[in-house]
Simulated assay, not measured.
Amino acid sequence: MWQLDTDHRAAHIGAALGYLGDDERAPTYRVGRAHYERTWRDGQWEGPEEDRPETPPDFLRAVCSCGWYARVLVEMHPDAASSRRRVPQGQDRARAFWLAHALAATSAALPDDAEQARARAMEWLRTLADSQPLAALALTRQLRADVDEIEQRAVRHARALEVPWEDIGAAVGTTRQQAWRKHKGLAPLDEKEARDVLRPTFLPSYQHDDGHPPYTVTDIDLTPLFD
């Protein structure tokens, strides 16, 4: 199972359900009176040994603890026969589908140090306004242009993550219609930009200039629960 390190409330824990052949449902196991769908992780079925499938899954579907299910199946074997829509590349591809969902779902959460950084910047600007008012006025003019640029950049990235206009409008304090009218002319991210937005950080080539990824994905081992 997977969790973004930025998801402090653990509201979006991801996993990959396994499917056998053309079966419409994932294999299940029972704990007490409850039934759970089996997930596939690191080459084995999760869950207790009883009734565990003897063969690997033919397809995977990314799911999230919030109730989200990927709309497509990921094909585990290139020669697997099925008429259903599927995408190759196995477990990493399934995790990439979940990652795109989790990034969009957690994109409204402010980093822990965001408010402190804003407060420090405002304190510095107030000091500048008191001591050098004309310099402060010139800087505020530039900051307005910078804020507009950041807003447009954020909107383009949000749309690449399929964040709905309603959520974008709420983030900037407007309605969905107002946000759409203001930003509908923005060009979508090109193929490379979109790929960078959605690139999982378990691919080491994606890093900030300081060598650190913008977020990390943690694998959560649930095996001890069933030992």
Rank of each mutant, 00 (worst) to 15 (best):
D7L: 09
H8P: 03
A10R: 09
L20C: 02
G21R: 12
E24D: 07
R30W: 03
R38G: 09
W40F: 11
E49I: 12
R52A: 14
P53W: 01
D58R: 00
G67K: 07
R71C: 11
R71A: 10
D79N: 08
D79V: 11
A80G: 06
A81D: 12
S82R: 08
V87I: 06
Q89M: 13
W98Y: 07
L103K: 07
S107N: 02
E115Q: 06
E115P: 11
Q116Y: 14
Q116R: 12
R120D: 06
L125W: 04
L125H: 15
T127G: 09
A129L: 08
Q132Y: 12
P133M: 11
A136E: 06
L137I: 12
L139W: 11
Q142T: 14
D146L: 13
I150W: 08
E151D: 09
R156P: 00
A158M: 05
A158K: 00
D167A: 15
I168N: 01
G169Y: 04
T174Q: 11
T174L: 09
Q178K: 01
W180N: 08
G185T: 01
G185C: 01
A187D: 14
E191N: 01
E193H: 15
D196G: 09
D196R: 04
R199P: 04
Q207D: 02
H208E: 00
H212T: 02
P214V: 01
Y215T: 10
T216N: 08
V217E: 08
T223H: 08
